[in-house]
Amino acid sequence: MKQPPDSTLRGRGASSAPPHRYARLAREPFDDGWAQEEEASPAPPTEVRWEEARSAITANRSPDLGFDRSLNPYRGCEHGCAYCYARPMHAWLDLSPGLDFERIIIARRHLAERLREELARPSYRPAPIALGTATDAWQPVERKLGLTRAVLEVLAEARHPWSVVTKGSGILRDLDLIAPMAASGLCEVYVTLTTLDAELARRLEPRAASPRRRLEVIAALAQAGVPVGVSLAPQIPFLTEDMEAVLTAAAEAGAVGAFMSILRLPHELEGIFDDWLQRHFPERRERILARLRELHGGALDGPFGARFRGQGPWAELLAQRFAIARRRVGLDRPLPPLAVHLFRPPAKRAGEPVQQALF
């Protein structure tokens, strides 16, 4: 696709598909004189590619994360968040972490069946499963494909605990499954809300729900009895500056907990986010990148164990500010622990409904 370097694609976070770190060839965009200077190009269509799921649960050994197992129905994410730390994972598929990440979505066929098999093994020991840790489990394609819902059906049958962080309002379509599980202490939800500034959110997270809609999601989950918190992740210096207002609004909507993280830019994400800054906030670009380097010890990504927290005086000040603001609105308590003792292995053969109906 031929695009001038400074073009903006409507509805997309990235403007181009830069080569990934394993690529042998590199292509550079150029301006052939036909682009309209002040007119955003139409968004390239989303393409879904199917991948046969060989397994469902992924083990986690990172000291930065608070769970030991996760499950991802999709690779790539239509939300198009300019800051997404999962973008470099598309390089493993020989795809660009830029535009390809939000345009080419890998859907994992028969994922629910693999999960059923793994939970039914005699050796399996239950612990909370984190859903959608790489890419959002309720991104737009979920409405059509229903892979996350199929997974929830297996987890509900097995009475297996799970948690999720999402910015997709589609989670409300599955409240009929989620609310009964929440009543048994089997699930918890965090809704990501980086800012209340609708214009900033539209640029930063172009296909995600608006800040107002995410507050409505928090309220609906809370009213349904689902333990819900708010995720202020990531915090971007000189850009997401309304932390206190976000926490106040989330608490008023019904959130009972909160956490945050600091932006990190691993691998190709450094260039992708830099390009986004040049297109949207060129006057703040140098200040933002300089402060990120201060937060990560001179780099744009921190070492294991401190990748999301940052280090140094600025990281400590941000953590103190968050702690004070969170305590002021009553969001400084952890969500209730999830029930593990209710687990029962699911039947070995899947029932008819969702997955078979898809194909």
Rank of each mutant, 00 (worst) to 15 (best):
V246D: 02
G257F: 04
W138G: 06
G132D: 06
C77A: 06
P206H: 04
P227Y: 00
C187I: 00
G13N: 07
R328E: 14
G170M: 10
L358V: 10
L25R: 14
A299Q: 03
A250W: 00
V354L: 14
V217R: 01
D32L: 15
D176H: 13
W314N: 08
S16V: 07
S16N: 13
L172V: 13
R114K: 11
P345G: 09
R27V: 06
D31Q: 06
T240L: 01
L221N: 00
P73D: 06
G310C: 09
T8A: 12
H79W: 11
G310R: 06
K348E: 14
V246R: 10
L93H: 14
E199A: 12
A43F: 02
G146V: 06
R293Q: 14
P227G: 01
P334C: 02
R333N: 11
R21Q: 09
E241Q: 13
H79D: 08
P282W: 04
A86F: 05
R149F: 07
A56P: 01
I218L: 02
P336T: 09
V354S: 08
I105N: 10
L147W: 10
M243P: 03
M181Q: 14
S231I: 06
Y124S: 01
D197L: 11
S261T: 15
A156K: 04
R213I: 13
I105Y: 10
Y190K: 02
E268W: 04
E268C: 09
V228L: 00
G185Y: 14
F359V: 04
V230L: 03
H296R: 03
Q311C: 15
S261W: 00
K2Y: 08
S169K: 10
A91W: 07
S55Y: 14
G229Q: 00
